[in-house]
């Protein structure tokens, strides 16, 4: 379950220890939701208001966060290790690229064209695929084309989903 030796190493600062960080994250989340729900009414004339659950639960999360920090006062926990988020970026970028191009998008005057599944899917596969350390472009390219063709067949024609395929070519 734990990922290798490094996770048991001592953190550089006690505040970077896993258990203390966990407490801080809970505390932060609770404060955020409490602030976001601050104006919701607790009760209404008819009964429970829309704020009862969000606000009371936020307080509980803050309480649990403080308790976690107190429990971790002596033992802040091991280091969380390297986060290696660099590898997540291409995956996230690939998915977001799909979101932008599948039906086109207008960001502040800059129009992203509507590419449809026929182009958005291979684009996503190639960009996301670059995240791996052993990625090979040629192989990915072929894979992307074959897989996208399968996706169009399955989602559009077999299941009949109303997803745009290639609006620039066949009108939908």
């Amino acid at each position: 379950m734990t990922g290798g030796e490094e996770r048991h190493a001592m953190p550089r600062s006690p505040w970077l220890g896993r258990e203390r960080l966990a407490g801080l994250v809970l505390l932060g989340f609770g404060v955020l939701t409490l602030a976001a729900g601050a104006r919701l009414p607790f009760f209404t004339s008819g009964g429970v208001g829309s704020g009862l659950m969000p606000r009371s639960l936020s307080v509980i999360v803050i309480g649990l966060g403080l308790l976690q920090l107190w429990l971790a006062r002596a033992n802040p926990g091991p280091s969380t290790g390297a986060w290696s988020l660099g590898r997540a970026i291409p995956v996230a970028a690939g998915a977001i690229l799909f979101a932008l191009t599948i039906r086109g998008f207008d960001i502040g005057g800059f129009e992203v064209p509507e590419l449809g599944l026929a182009l958005a899917a291979p684009l996503t596969i190639i960009v996301a695929g670059m995240a791996d350390k052993d990625a090979r472009l040629g192989e990915l390219l072929i894979f992307a084309v074959v897989l996208s063709a399968c996706c169009i067949g399955i989602f559009r024609y077999a299941l009949g989903l109303s997803i745009p395929v290639a609006p620039w070519l066949i009108g939908y």
Binding site: G94, A95, A99, I102, A121, I125, A128, F143
Partner: peptide, 14 residues
């Protein structure tokens, strides 16, 4: 895995 995960990403997006 270098091919499996882009496929999962694509299926998830669709």
């Amino acid at each position: 895995y270098r091919l499996l995960f882009p496929a999962i990403v694509a299926f998830c997006c669709i």
